[in-house]
Design a protein around this nucleic acid. Sequence first.
DNA 1: GTCTATACACGGATAGAC
DNA 2: GTCTATCCGTGTATAGAC
Lengths: 190, 190
Amino acid sequence: MYSVRMSTADRLVESTRELLWERGYVGTSPKAILERADAGQGSMYHHFRGKQDLALAAIRRTADEMLATAERVLGRPGTPYERIEGYLMRERDVLRGCPVGRLTMDPDVIASDVLRAPVDATLARLRRRLAEIVEEGKRQGQFAADLDAEEIAAAVVATVQGGYVLARASGSPAAFDAGVRGLLALLRPA
Amino acid sequence: MYSVRMSTADRLVESTRELLWERGYVGTSPKAILERADAGQGSMYHHFRGKQDLALAAIRRTADEMLATAERVLGRPGTPYERIEGYLMRERDVLRGCPVGRLTMDPDVIASDVLRAPVDATLARLRRRLAEIVEEGKRQGQFAADLDAEEIAAAVVATVQGGYVLARASGSPAAFDAGVRGLLALLRPA
DNA sequence: GTCTATACACGGATAGAC
DNA sequence: GTCTATCCGTGTATAGAC
């Protein structure tokens, strides 16, 4: 299922990451994780204290990866508008949704400060990074000086997260693309 | 728990609506529904064919209510911008999220055409209604003529749905408000 | 480190009495 | 229409052998 060279602990984390993405925390059982990782009960409780502990490791890895992916686009050369456009239009597996954002709809994640923390930190950093770029655009005169950078950044991230909702509701990525194009049309410098 | 005059079937639907909102479909068990409705197993399987059938009734009722609530704001007098602003700024229980949108993150809802249908229809109608209003704004010259009304409508709905994600991640409604204000700043007529 | 065995409550549904 | 009894599989975890 995974590379032969991958340790049991890594296979456990990887299958947990996949299942959290597909089914969320409440929808994911240790049993399903073990089957996918091709591991036994004993391995899981040896390497991790239980479902929550394993989920935490999985969420952290996913969160790190998401920020790295965003930075690869946002850190490219180009005008601020172009970099935000690049972020919004980058290829995504839209119907799968955001592996981090989807966790906010999970009651057990939201109820646990420990599980919620990496989710919060990730979205906060993403917003901060986008706000920096908006600030840069304001200084360069590409964006109107009276825009609030943090607010624009929040709108950008919200459009992406909400775009997933619309796409999954309709079973098609088209709605995601529509929302993104709508926001970009409003943001586009004259 | 509910009005004494409410029938058992109605109490079942109401408690299912609450639980779907709080915990989603996979996170909601018949047992929890029955406890909250103060009903027995027999009542539930007498009035409904099972969990999915009951959930469908609950989702339909929630969907209808959501469209009615939106229309109460969108149908008010005022300029198109003011009506959209009214929709975005209306009072919401932000941290609870959208009772319809949250279902798109539920694997069993998305996997079932029957359960997904009312979710899809509701968000599609909301978008359509907003697009009408944007069209009106374009005709009146309040919005730029080159904006695509459907795209702007998608961006508006996505900002709301994504705003819930940001708010729930951070445990505070502030992020929702920020996203909404950001979008309104971009949309505001000169 | 990994396995098997065991535990016990819960999930979702059916059967039949009242 | 509602209640209780019963069913079987699953969810999450522990115990102890190897």
